[in-house]
Design a protein around this nucleic acid. Structure first.
Length: 298
DNA sequence: CTTAGGCCTCGCTT
DNA sequence: AAAGCGAGGCCTA
């Protein structure tokens, strides 16, 4: 199947799937492979077309338009957030990166699992979780896995979950899964309120703090103003905008941990500076900063 | 209301 | 090679 991208420019599949917002896509040769909403999708971008095939169900073009937010007027958004040299460079480097509309449940669990970890470890855990608890999809002699349902995770034993390498996050995972499987409409209901109320509700879930709540708001609930502040974003904000060093703990010589007031300050700055699409700015800055770091360490 | 520790586990560096 | 450090934070005291 083919989706013509002409009316959806700019769009860059590699940047979109590589930037760290999703954890379950893998590139095999020239094809990206991933399972979304229970369907295996293989994707390849070729200039102005997105080629895809799926298994076991077919999907229509609207599915991909929705998933990759091709309905966002990205040119317009980029011109709105393009407010300084730093973001300009990030936009130039990864032009066509789009946010993805993720499934709320999978997104929530992924970011609870992600805390205090690096990306390879996060991917490993989520993969282990899907392999252990998710339904199989066998295609082309390869086995893929659907992300497990809330009720399945809720019924898992702590030992089973620990084998997925999630460590002390087991209790967050279990308790959150229980809350959601006990109240199946919870996540659906959360699509209704605006950013502030949504965030407040997400914060009630065990293992969800400001950062996770903002990631889930941005990636799964259409809240494009949400501006998750993690340590990379904090560093780029200090470097580009505050023009000063991050406070150091004199005893350990390490960066002081991010406080709530500092989180709120950086978030407020971002809204003031980038406006209603601050979330897009966050993703471009984050990916640029992390790539830069990866270059340095090579 | 603010601020320190502790925390599973693993990737990466020395 | 083995050990130590720090990671896309959160929770509790």
């Amino acid at each position: 199947m083919e989706l013509k991208l002409k009316k959806y420019n700019p769009f860059n599949l590699d940047h979109t799937l590589n930037c760290g917002q999703v954890f379950r896509w893998e590139k095999c040769g020239e094809w990206w492979e991933g399972v979304v909403n229970g369907v295996l999708i293989r994707l390849k971008q070729d200039k102005n077309s997105l080629f895809f095939h799926t298994y076991p169900h077919s999907i229509n073009h609207e599915f991909l338009v929705n998933y990759f937010r091709l309905d966002d007027d990205l040119s317009e958004i980029l011109s709105l957030i393009d407010r300084d040299d730093g973001i300009k460079e990030a936009i130039r480097a990864h032009h066509g990166l789009r946010l993805i509309r993720q499934d709320p449940w999978e997104c929530l669990i992924s970011y609870i699992i992600a805390t205090n970890s690096n990306i390879p470890a996060i991917k490993r855990r989520i993969k282990a979780l899907a392999e252990r608890f998710g339904d199989e999809i066998i295609f082309d002699e390869k086995t893929f896995h659907v992300f497990p349902e809330p009720s399945v995770v809720a019924k898992a034993t702590p030992d089973e979950l620990k084998k997925c390498g999630v460590g002390y996050r087991v209790k967050y995972l279990l308790e959150t899964a229980k809350m959601i499987s006990d109240d199946p409409d919870l996540l659906e209901e959360l699509k209704k309120p605006g950013y502030e109320e949504l965030r407040e509700e997400l914060l009630k879930l065990p293992g969800v703090g400001y950062k996770v709540a903002d990631c889930v708001s941005l990636f799964a609930f259409n809240k494009l103003k949400a501006f998750p502040v993690d340590l990379w974003v904090r560093r780029v904000m200090y470097q580009n905008y505050l023009r000063k060093e991050i406070p150091i703990n004199p005893e350990t010589g390490k960066e002081k941990p991010l406080t709530r007031s500092e989180y709120d300050m950086l978030r407020a700055f971002a809204w003031d500076h980038f406006g209603e699409y601050a979330g897009y700015a966050q993703e471009y800055l984050f990916y640029y900063k992390r790539n830069e770091q990866a270059m340095v360490s090579k």
